[in-house]
Amino acid sequence: MRTFLAAITLCVAGFAVSAAPTKPIAPVSDAVIMAAGMPKKLSEYGFFTDAAGWTPNKGVKLYRLNSALFTDYAEKYRYIYIPAGQQAVADGDGRLQFPVGSALIKSFGYKIDGEDRLLETRVLLHRADGWIALPYVWNAEQTEATLKVSGTRIPVRFTDPSGNARDISYAVPNKNQCKECHSLSNAVVPIGPKMRNLTHDTLDMLLSNAMLEQPGRDHPPIPDFANAAMPLESRARAYLDINCAHCHNREGSASNSGLFLTYEEESPVHLGVGKRPVAAGRGSGGFAFAIAPGEPDQSIMMHRLKSLEPGVAMPEVGRSLVHEEGAALLSEWIEQMEKK
């Protein structure tokens, strides 16, 4: 709902500016994005025109993903900023390569007591020496978000999509934890913006605004894992890709596990089928295989997805609730695999 409002606000932003010519809105600060150091306040960047962080500034565009990472049912609002006159380019794998000076901004919030509230906004800044990830935490008044490199925990009570009241200790990741997930060969990289995972509308928007170079080839989209009309196999693989594969790939934080869950992975054993644990410890739950075909209840993958215990629960960061819908999808996927 808020996303919708934000989009509308974006459409009328031009009018708002012309209606109040006495106070022009400063553009996004390229200097703040590019300069070394870590700005203390989110407002320093000028990504939003309102203090509450809902109305994106000129050049800051809301975008959407086909399948999104589960973060304790938080609502997420994603924005791309690319410096004026420049473009992102899709590489051979369909990963968007952003020009230096670009920023990806992602706000997390919940509807609390009927009101949309933001908890944190994470920014990924593309500087001359690479990407840097920084977490900002919103104040209670919702007027400013402040840098919190060490992360924090925020008690939250909200109602999940099934109508259950939830009380959680929401974890804002620290700067290093940002990198743990956003890491490829030990460098920080964006995760979501890949051709295959951007919605059709988002791609249209980026192309029509000349923010993205016309790609040289097709990149077939991955489905929304929640879309039951799509094939089970591709939904499950889309879920694993966006929830697990940022660590579980050959160059990621979980490279040592040998469990590789990218959408492209072709080896059944690296996907977990008949794969024994390596360093799982009690994470194994006493089971022999990451995926025991036909037996979700005997599969370490399901055990870890359904666990809330630190040291067992996967993903390791950003989850204090079980994603019931995701677990049900993967369970169904493993169930229909032929038993060995």
Partner: peptide
């Protein structure tokens, strides 16, 4: 009293 993460201290 640890609530999250896969280890006590991680060095990268």
């Amino acid at each position: 009293g640890q609530l999250g993460a896969g280890e006590g201290l991680l060095v990268t």
